[in-house]
Amino acid sequence: MNLAIPTPGIRRRSVTGLWLRHAVSFVRYWKFVLTWVLIEPVIILVAVGFGVGKLVGTMDDGVSYAQFVTPGLIIGNAMFHALFETSWNAYNRIDNDVYETALTTPITILEITMGDILWAVTRSILTVVGTAIVAALFGWLNHWEAIGMIIPAIMVGITFGALGFLFSAVAPHTTFLTLVFTLVASPMFFFSGSFFPISILPDWVEPIAWAMPLTSAVHIGRGFALASLDITHLWAALYLIAVTAVLWPIAVFLLRRKLIS
């Protein structure tokens, strides 16, 4: 079949152009976006950190529960941002022919996913940095290594940005998209070591928890936040990269099937 071969090469303008589109739209609606980026995660942080933290007291190694839960909540929240961008928002862009319009310029499907995932990374960084500053003011981030959380923030943006497309590219309607949260985001948020160490789960559940990509991201985030980095954090990073290497091509394939027919 003609045109079956995707256009080769990567055009930088496609990626920056799409990113700029998202940034402009973001700035237009900054008041609403702020509730997502900062206010909501801080509310959860305060509720869990102060509230649950009071009940739990101190974890092993003399770390307070608030200190333990902070990186988990921050990275988990970043996942929601990345997923939302490429599932719900991308679905709307498909549905409103925004991508079709973009495709009348010299852009490719791969570049569309690159531009959108780059924006998912941007959102992830914004919310991680913003929430981390607030957490630091509360005294819940007290190692300078916590700055390194920007690394899992980027990885979360890429991995979950790619994952989100798997839903937007096949969703027949918006109701289908709720699966992103009921099947993916919420189970991960609660079972990926954000709120409690995975080691307290039954033995047979533990491997399942580790298979979820957010677990690795939270693990890395906590390694930086508590300045407790070791070789396991490197394995976690490699695992995330491997998952992304599988998800991204599938995302491109599905999106091409959706848009080029």
């Binding site: 739209s25 237009r28 609606y29 409103n96 022919d97 079709e100 319009t101």
Partner: peptide
């Protein structure tokens, strides 16, 4: 294109 494909998030 047949549909206007305007971006509702922008002016």
């Amino acid at each position: 294109t047949q549909h206007d494909g305007l971006d509702g998030g922008l002016t």
